[in-house]
């Protein structure tokens, strides 16, 4: 099953490679991994989308907690949560595609953030599924380039991940 694991870790050189090294050494899946500093500059927050049986996910959280630089780990799937991903997508938008593209972008609540003679660059956020759906809807030939961030997530309501 798919899981989103959020990790607070010391914002130190090498911490990222310890986490990614753990996943490769133990054969765990990584669907996506994102990381950036938090409001507290000494901490980074990492979001890993992974998949595995309950036992595997349990081992993953335990192994992550064992890393000395990891401060906290939560599996967002344990409770209601929100998941978002950002995609920048460059599409063909010559004279004949332009209107269609604009409409598609609007339907998916995308924003056109760059325009050239025959391209649009659209910014789109949502769940991974929504981004997939957008790509599907546009069709391969329309797409020039995509850049996706991988999912980021947060719990709903009162649950917070902080130290």
């Amino acid at each position: 099953m798919r899981h989103i694991i959020s990790i607070l870790l010391e914002n130190e050189a090498g911490a990222l490679s310890r986490v990614s090294g753990l996943f490769s050494a133990r054969g765990y899946n990584i669907e996506s991994l994102t990381v950036a500093p938090t409001e507290d500059a000494s901490l980074s927050r990492m979001t890993i989308v992974t998949s595995g049986s309950g036992d595997v996910i349990e081992q993953i959280t335990k192994q992550l907690n064992k890393l000395v630089e990891v401060v906290k780990v939560v599996d967002l799937f344990e409770a209601p949560h929100i998941e978002r991903e950002l995609m920048l997508i460059k599409v063909r938008a010559g004279a004949k595609e332009r209107d269609d593209m604009k409409r598609m972008s609007d339907i998916f609540r995308g924003r056109i953030i760059d325009v050239s003679e025959d391209t649009f660059t659209i910014e789109l956020t949502g769940t991974g599924q929504k981004l997939d759906a957008f790509i599907e809807a546009l069709g391969r030939t329309a797409i020039l380039e995509t850049a996706r961030t991988g999912a980021s997530g947060i719990s709903r309501g009162q649950r917070v991940l902080r130290i």
Binding site: D55, E58, Q59, K62, Q63, N65, K66
Partner: peptide, 11 residues
């Protein structure tokens, strides 16, 4: 002392 040793190979 290591939670990851527990229920790793045997529940």
């Amino acid at each position: 002392i290591d939670p990851s040793s527990i229920s790793k190979r045997v529940k």
